[in-house]
Design a protein around this nucleic acid. Structure first.
Lengths: 344, 344
DNA sequence: ACGCTGGGCTAAATCGATATAGCATTTGTT
DNA sequence: AACAAATGCTATATCGATTTAGCCCAGCGT
């Protein structure tokens, strides 16, 4: 039986009757550069592929400082948006020979710090981070280590970093305008208790649209709910909020999970989505597509986001650029039945 | 500025005025065993924590052969079931100091082999695998490497291995019986083209229930669709199938994504779920809970599954057992409106 | 005073790869 | 023929930890 330990560079060297150094040169494509003869070179290649040699990534990583591993920190891998994105990124990273180590923050800064810590001493080559509140210090420190960091979904306006996000302001503006154009008059928003840029932008896009359409706006139309609540508590909060507004005829849920809780809440109130209350959400979801009535939303271009993130990362790994790459993609408005007051 | 490279054991040794060996002994809790004095021991501990020393996992891994990393292979991380499970397992693994490297197979054997290969030369300590068809050889080889392997969601009956699954037969039997008890008479099943045990069991549970309730069964009531089709193609196939059966009054979708496609298909046929056609699915999903009408399903105990998997893995990592741990959990029937023919 | 025992610590090898410096040998030049 | 340059390859150090073998010294018995 073959030994437990894999084939090492020494085994090949022995079989080829050369030194490990030579084998290393050849297998790293430095045969020409290091003036190894065609003969020897081919012989080594042949033996390596016959033995199915795979370099031990630990040893290589220890010596070179490169582990071909990317650390991925998302808010919640169980959330459809992040899971789908994770899959795209994993595929893209794989094309470049990178693997992904991941973790979820639950939007908790301490958890995020812990994850960064672990990824650091696991020597990942680069980071993809969905930052939490107050993670700016850590992100800046990370930049100083010269390992590429790309922020996703959100970023820190006062920190110069790479990021890939969507235009949250425009997305929120468009979907709110759509509600206004449909004839809804009193529109509320349910969002997360968070000062982070993506939620701020969504809220601002919302208020700007109300203003431009001369619709009423005041603080009582905004509900902020803490991320960490349980499902029941979300529903309670949402119901309390919605019933507190006289004349309310439409509501914008600022994330996919809020949209899902929102639908549940509205249904338990017995309100009819569409005619009685317009409903729109940020992010798309199978549930929104197939709900009766189907739910209008602002969809993020997940594949594009994922590809962009990995592309930026690879560029920075290969030749770091002086200035940060900051990519803002356009979300798309998907109009469905939940925002149609005329619907039977 | 601090040097880029982290704190190493040498730095601590230097500061403490001792050898790296001593530091290693102390930090690995072998102070007593190796007869290091209390004094020196405490001093080293203090310096280590002051410098926030974290051992370089690559170096440690190279020497010990343990990377504290688990390879996780799922069918599709973008699928809610696998994503939720991945999160549970990540959390559990983290409690034991393990990180997770993951990949999706898309139920494609070649992709699965590739993932195993990569995880192997990345020296993961253990594997959690959702196997694809024909992956039995590789699983057996893996066992020979003495790295623990736990199969999930499905297993190979002829391979003796650890696994954690649900009782697919019973789940399918129960939900089918429920349909029968509700008065549905002609029940079909939509499943995946797959000979794997989990789908086989679901199909068998289904047919057994039909038989026990004296309901008709023949091959025309079974539709198998290839996993790799696109959404459109799934819908086309499902619609073609459902309309081909005279007198059909209920259908069982054997996975969550089939259930989702199924709902979409049935709705585009204009059929009324519940009264006109009973619908049930394997796996729960937000969509099933909130659909109108809500969808009856067989839910898998995700948290329990995830915890069990990691528990088995940790036991095997610590003291490998001679006989395989094979855990079969009970899924639960969640009765909702889609299986109520009397519903308004 | 000599050997023995045990306490307290360390030198050096090792894991598997890569990078640096350099050693033979051949070829070319005048 | 003498020397330089090019060719083809290798010895050795290194990354940062762990592990093995063993050194030195103090105290003890006789």
């Amino acid at each position: 039986m073959l030994s437990m330990k894999g084939i090492s560079i020494k085994d090949i060297a022995k079989q080829a009757g050369v030194s490990p150094t030579t084998v290393s040169f050849v297998l790293n494509g430095k045969a020409k550069e290091k003036r190894i003869s065609e003969q020897v070179s081919k012989k080594i290649q042949k033996i390596a592929s016959r033995l199915k040699y795979k370099p031990n990534q630990l040893a290589r990583g220890l010596r070179t400082g490169k582990t071909k591993t990317i650390g991925l920190i998302v808010e919640d891998i169980a959330n459809n948006f992040f899971a789908s994105l994770a899959k795209v990124m994993e595929d893209e990273a794989d094309k470049h020979g990178y693997k992904v180590l991941y973790g979820s923050t639950e939007d908790n800064t301490e958890k995020a710090k812990g994850l960064l810590e672990v990824l650091k001493y696991r020597q990942v080559d680069a980071y993809i981070v969905t930052p939490t509140k107050n993670l700016d210090k850590e992100i800046e420190q990370l930049k100083a280590t010269s390992k590429p960091v790309v922020l996703m979904d959100r970023y820190f306006p006062h920190v110069s970093s790479h990021y890939v996000v969507v235009d949250n302001y425009q997305g929120a503006y468009n979907v709110t305008s759509h509600l206004a154009n449909q004839g809804y008059k009193k529109i509320a928003i349910v969002t997360i208790t968070s000062d982070q840029i993506q939620m701020k932008d969504r809220l601002e896009g919302f208020t700007a649209a109300l203003k431009d359409h001369h619709l009423p706006f005041n603080k009582s139309l905004v509900k902020k709910i803490p991320f960490e609540l349980e499902r029941e508590a979300f529903n309670t909060e949402i119901k309390k909020f919605l019933t507190s507004i006289k004349g309310l005829d439409a509501v914008f849920f600022a994330t996919n999970y809020l949209g899902i809780y929102g639908i549940e809440s509205i249904r338990s109130l017995g309100w009819e989505i569409g005619p009685q209350i317009g409903v729109v959400s940020f992010d798309d979801h199978d549930l929104f597509r197939l709900h009766s009535p189907s739910i209008t939303c602002v969809a993020q271009p997940i594949t594009e986001i994922g590809k962009n993130i990995v592309e930026v990362l690879m560029q920075e790994l290969n030749h770091p650029s002086a200035s940060p790459q900051q990519i803002v993609l356009e979300p798309s408005l998907i109009i469905r039945a939940s925002s149609d007051p005329g619907k039977k």
